[in-house]
């Protein structure tokens, strides 16, 4: 196991180098222009544009830009944003708390809702509860979050006036009142996103539990007279968790990059919103910084998932 771990960690290094090179090339070649908004501004001459591009370092060949980026990144410097001229790391750190808090809580809500419902609807297949969760889950999933987000805003903010539609990042939790305000402003984004995640995860949990229920060992266990709950928890769940672990490991890095649509709808100043703004404004250093951290998390969590497989099911060998 340890040897496997070391080997995998060593392989991660060339993997990440390759990933960084590919991402950098994609971003450098992708069309776009940081000065887009001034395209039709008659007082911005071609020389001025050229000079600004030069000051942003865009006149150098791609491979030189890449090596400069790698050199700086290894020293913990992710460069300066084209748009705000402040360090990329500072921008990310500013956005991190709101992202992790809102998107992270949404994910926890999603997992907490999905697990019991997914398991129950698998065990009690075709029961009323299964039909209801299936239908509701698929309705929530079929509608994109820009739509459900708007729907809950119209309902709870505009009509009922119960909850704010806007996330205030200057709000600081100091007492019960401000804590209440914090909870209130989180309910809508966390709810919309959490239920979306739940709807999705629930389907997977249900399917993988169903798959296990027919396995011979389960029948054997029942035949041996073990109680239903015991069989479920001891045998079925453990094996059914493997696909779920796979998915969760794929999703957790996404908590870092945030949920772009939900963040925009509720004006949560998260990393997703930063990323999308930066992409639209061709703010390459910011996009590169966020994407590469995401890549590191992907590699890391897929490694975690691979290790968890063999813990969950000792038969899995590498």
């Amino acid at each position: 196991m340890n040897r496997y771990l070391i080997k995998r960690l060593l392989i991660s290094i060339p993997t990440l180098i390759a990933i960084s090179a590919v991402i950098f090339t994609v971003l450098a070649l992708a069309p776009g222009d940081p000065l887009g908004e001034f395209a039709t501004n008659p007082s911005l001459t071609a020389e001025v544009r050229e000079n600004i591009r030069k000051s942003l370092g865009l006149d150098l060949p791609i491979y030189i830009r890449y090596f400069k980026w790698v050199g700086a990144f290894l020293q913990g410097d992710m460069g300066y944003s084209f748009n705000s001229r402040s360090p990329v790391s500072e921008l990310i750190i500013q956005r991190l708390p709101a992202t992790l808090f809102v998107v992270g809580s949404a994910y926890i809500v999603g997992v907490l809702v999905a697990f019991p419902l997914g398991i129950v609807s698998a065990i009690k297949r075709y029961s009323i509860i299964d039909q209801i969760t299936t239908t509701l889950g698929l309705i929530w999933f079929s509608l994109p979050t820009f739509f459900t987000g708007l729907l809950v805003i119209l309902l709870f903010s505009v009509q009922l006036k119960w909850l704010p539609s806007m996330y205030d990042s200057t709000l600081e939790v100091r007492d019960w009142a401000s804590f209440g305000a914090m909870v209130k402003q989180c309910i809508l984004p966390v709810g919309v996103l959490g239920l979306y995640q739940a709807a999705r995860l629930m389907r997977f949990i249900r399917a993988s539990v169903l798959e296990q229920l027919n396995q011979e060992y389960v029948r054997t266990a029942y035949a041996k007279g073990l109680s239903g709950m015991r069989v479920i928890f001891r045998h079925v769940l453990r094996n059914a968790l493997i696909p779920v672990v796979t998915l969760v490991a794929l999703d957790v890095p996404g908590v870092f990059t945030g949920a772009l649509v939900t963040e925009q709808v509720f004006r949560v100043p998260g990393i997703g919103a930063l990323l999308i703004d930066s992409i639209y404004r061709s703010d390459t250093p910011v996009v590169m910084g966020i994407t590469f951290i995401y890549a590191i998390l992907i590699v890391l969590f897929n490694l975690v998932a691979d290790i968890l497989y063999s813990l969950l099911d000792p038969r899995v060998e590498y």
Binding site: P97, L100, G104, Y107, I108, V245, V248, V255, L311, L312
Partner: peptide, 17 residues
């Protein structure tokens, strides 16, 4: 042990708070 993984999320967000 597998629950550990699920615990990572709350820990991160708790830290962030």
């Amino acid at each position: 042990k597998s629950i550990l993984l699920l615990a990572i999320v709350p820990i991160i967000s708790w830290l962030s708070a």
